[in-house]
Amino acid sequence: MASEPTYSEAYQSGIREEMNNNPKIFIMGTDLQERGGHFAQVKGIAQEFGGERVRDTPISEAAMIAAGVGAAMYGMRPVVDLNFMDFALGAMDEIINQAAHIRYMFNGSVPLIIRATSGIAQAGAHHNNSFESFFAHTPGLSVAVPGTPWDVKGLLKTALRADDPVIFMMHKKLTGMRGPIGGPEDLVPFGKARIAREGADATLVTYGYTLIPAMKAAETLAAEGKQVEILDLRTLFPMDMDAVIEAVKRTGRMVVVDEAPLFASITAEIAATASEAAFDSLKGPIVRVGAQRAPLSADPGMVEATIPSISDIEAALRKVLSY
């Protein structure tokens, strides 16, 4: 039996199907044609669709995004592939002041996808930033953070059929993850969280790679007789706050985890909003788990000291379970 596709192959599958359906979709970025991108995310796509639709660019992040913005305004559907999310900083004006704000002022849409690999793995402070919160913070942008191959493909398809600038963040450590993917019309909607694990005693909210340590922590607690529900957000904007609030009402105990610096983070947004909306259902404060507010070191031990571990997640769960 052929093995299930990887997270990267799920992306290839989604982009291939959508490019076949819609001649307006094209991709641009560095090292896409031969190498297939730094994460093999578009491996083979240039060979199938040619160099006009899979464009190798100079290392000009501002011009890459500007090209995407202008082409999207003109009616095309560009996907700008930055390889690493960190490289967005060279194009932050194009993303925030331009792509995100044009619809509001200029009577036109910007159907632009900015794909990049994100999250913490290795290689130090310039390749391991977690920018989820500033993109989600920006009016006009939507942010996808798929945690499975299925969601990569399904969310990508939804994004490619919508009309908005979308930041599509794929986690480094999920690149080779295998799993089932949907067919041509299995779209995953934005703003709809998924219950990744059922459990009645507490709810853990997370997304992306952190689902994996979260799942392990839940297994440990299961061995201790406590069932933890895990909610996978799938997109950070729109965010499925209804699902979060329902979960609070269901279990009354909540932990929110990601690997971004805790201060002014997505986890803060969730904890604040859920507390405001469902305070009476909570048996105790929502507990947040995140990274220290330090640049990412290249040293593995230092990385471990910066970001949450499985035992940090377990400790947070034990804390809410003690209420």
């Binding site: 307006k24 094209f26 202008g70 082409a71 999207a72 305004m73 331009q98 200029f106």
Partner: peptide
């Protein structure tokens, strides 16, 4: 009219993107 711009240098890049759109279309 793809917009005036509050950011010096940003408009021309958007014009370049429009030109890419024109070419691809």
């Amino acid at each position: 009219h793809f917009g005036g711009n509050g950011i010096v240098g940003a408009g021309m890049g958007i014009g370049m993107g429009a030109a890419l759109g024109i070419k691809l279309a």
